Amino acid sequence: MQDPEAHSYMMVLKYAKDENLREYLKNNFNNINWKQKLLNLQELSLNLKNIHKLDIVVHQDFHPGNISYDFKNNNMYISDFGLSKLIGANPNNPEKKNLFGVLPYIAPEVLSGDEEYTKAADVYSFGIIAY
Rank of each mutant, 00 (worst) to 15 (best):
Y24W: 08
M1K: 12
P91L: 14
D61P: 02
D122H: 00
L41T: 03
S125M: 01
F71I: 12
K17H: 09
S68N: 00
K49I: 03
L48V: 02
K35L: 14
K85I: 05
K85N: 11
G65M: 02
L13R: 03
N47L: 06
N33I: 08
Y9M: 12
G101K: 02
N40S: 12
N50G: 11
D61Q: 04
F62H: 00
N33E: 09
G82E: 00
S125F: 02
L44M: 15
T118W: 01
P94H: 08
K53M: 14
P4V: 13
K85S: 13
M10E: 07
D61I: 05
Y117H: 13
L46F: 09
L25Q: 06
Y9R: 08
Y105V: 03
I87R: 05
L39V: 12
G65K: 05
E19I: 10
P4D: 14
K37V: 14
L25T: 06
H59Y: 01
D3W: 11
L83T: 07
S79D: 07
H63W: 13
I87L: 07
K35A: 09
K14F: 07
H59W: 04
S45H: 03
I128V: 15
I128N: 01
E23P: 01
G88I: 09
A120V: 14
N20G: 01
A6S: 15
Q2M: 15
L46Y: 15
E115D: 14
F71P: 04
M11Y: 08
E109N: 02
E109W: 13
N92Q: 12
P94Q: 10
L38P: 01
W34E: 15
I106Q: 07
N75M: 12
G88D: 05
N33Y: 00
N20V: 11
I67M: 11
N73D: 12
L41F: 13
M1Q: 10
V58T: 14
I56L: 07
Q60K: 15
N50C: 10
D18V: 08
V102I: 11
G65H: 09
A107Q: 06
K26F: 10
P94K: 14
H63Q: 06
N92S: 08
L44D: 07
Y69C: 01
Q60F: 03
Y117F: 15
L25W: 13
